[in-house]
Design a protein around this nucleic acid. Structure first.
Lengths: 266, 266
DNA sequence: CGCGACGTTGACCTACCTCAATTGGCGTGG
DNA sequence: CCACGCCAATTGAGGTAGGTCAACGTCGCG
């Protein structure tokens, strides 16, 4: 369950109206290949992907690149804009994309007028962390075929919103080089790995489309367990609700820190 | 700047008293090697490391393990306890450790009575994310020596609290096997890599101690840039304050979601 | 038609893995 | 105090997954 879906499901209607209005006011379109954020620049905004695909990557001084995240429609990103002075990653559009760029001040107002916003953003960040950790185990423990298979499974599930898609097809906008940068492999080796998956696992990677004949089998190869994606929020959100309720019952204004203290600290 | 330090620096005194009192009430001691959380179990609490070292790892079905995070004193962890039904990672004590385990209900109350708590936890999660991404680039792009060197640099900086420690020495509680699980390498190869770092980079890894003769040189090898650790909060927190202030100026109760909506959603 | 981006293939290389044995430190029990 | 056992570190020999380099194919587009 991505950020936008969570907003729709849990945020009270009046807030949702405010939120969606704001988001649309800050829409911006980026052509395929354009850099939305450049590593090192001063972060200006928090972003919501409205359509398209984005890749976030970190570049080392000697040029090596690692794609550290893929952002699909509905995802929230760049939340760290508020605790950091420079972006540590670049953000690039993998295809023509529409992105809502919420500048600092606007987001400040929004958080104030939509009390549910802060928590939902926080929870969305927690979900993002889970994906990061799964990628980390991929790079650390899985071999080439498993890594690619795992990524394919993840992207199919994230797009379909179903935990077990059976057979499935979905859009796919990564070149083999980009796939390589995401998996920590060479473009050449990615190519050979894909051929293997094609031959022996019924995976078909065509023009902007990924087709998986037997999802269960691919998932088994990849040791893919969709739990980390927190897709069927129903289970998880049960406790989320408990938590929020407990907080609410006693609670007062919560999200912002005391400006006085902050002034003193800085 | 870790979670506990952030609490001390930014939270108003009355809240801090409440918070610290609660934390101490839930102290629990774990001997070295004990499992604090077992992958798959129902998460019971959010944790703050008071002393000791913890490792979080994910285990694949076939037994392969990846250490996905190291938690040092002052760190907050297991924040996902509230959005997930089962822990996706195990948590183990690398040495005798004291951990505050805040159960759900207690944390609910705390968040309600300490308005600054939610935001600080969220920011701490964002910082954690940055570290995850750096680990990800390590596994994806750095070779064995660079990975180990990078981890050494990170751990020295995190413990010293200084961005450029010059030469430095610090505690170190990972065995070579654990180092291997963190770096996605073999124990044997870790051993050889450490020998290389010893010989050619003045790194000395002794009984529970890590000594780095020339930090700058090691950092250069590792392409280590401490920015991601957000150590000198002063820079970053400037905007943090701006943000919180904007939110506060308009704000009302923010952290908890509306229980009504949540009930409807579940 | 020609150019540029992406995919494919082959030959060779090496960083890291695997397996297996050995060493050394340290705590425990006799 | 020594003997034993355990665990972590070390060493060696040989294997392989994946990298490197370089060429070629193919498709879409101006």
């Amino acid at each position: 369950m991505n950020f936008s879906a969570l907003i729709e499901e849990t945020m009270p209607l009046p807030q949702r109206v405010v939120w969606n209005g704001a988001v649309e006011r800050f829409h911006r379109t980026f052509p395929k290949g354009s850099e939305i954020v450049h590593q090192g620049e001063h972060p200006r905004a928090v972003r919501v992907v409205r359509s398209g695909w984005l890749a976030r990557y970190r570049q080392l001084e000697d040029g090596r690149r690692q794609i550290v995240a893929l952002h699909l429609p509905g995802d929230l990103c760049d939340l760290d804009a508020f605790s950091r002075m420079r972006a540590e990653h670049s953000l690039v559009a993998l295809r023509t994309s529409v992105v809502a760029e919420l500048p600092r001040h606007a987001l400040g107002h929004l958080i104030a007028s939509c009390p549910a916003l802060g928590p939902v953003m926080a929870f969305s960040e927690i979900d993002g962390m889970a994906t990061q950790r799964e990628w980390l185990t991929s790079l650390g423990q899985r071999n080439a075929a498993e890594r690619v298979a795992h990524l394919f499974c993840e992207l199919l599930v994230r797009q379909s919103g179903e935990v077990r898609p059976g057979a499935g097809e979905c859009e796919f906008f990564l070149t083999q080089s980009q796939l390589a940068e995401a998996c920590g492999l060479t473009q050449v080796h990615i190519n050979r790995t894909i051929q293997l998956l094609r031959r022996s696992y019924g995976v078909d990677l065509g023009k902007s489309r990924l087709h998986i004949a037997d999802f269960a089998r691919l998932a088994e190869l990849a040791m893919f367990n969709p739990a980390y994606l927190n897709i069927d929020g129903s289970e998880g959100r049960h406790d989320f609700a408990l938590f929020a309720h407990a907080a609410m019952s006693a609670g007062e204004s919560a999200w912002p820190l005391s400006p006085a203290r902050l002034g003193a600290a800085s």
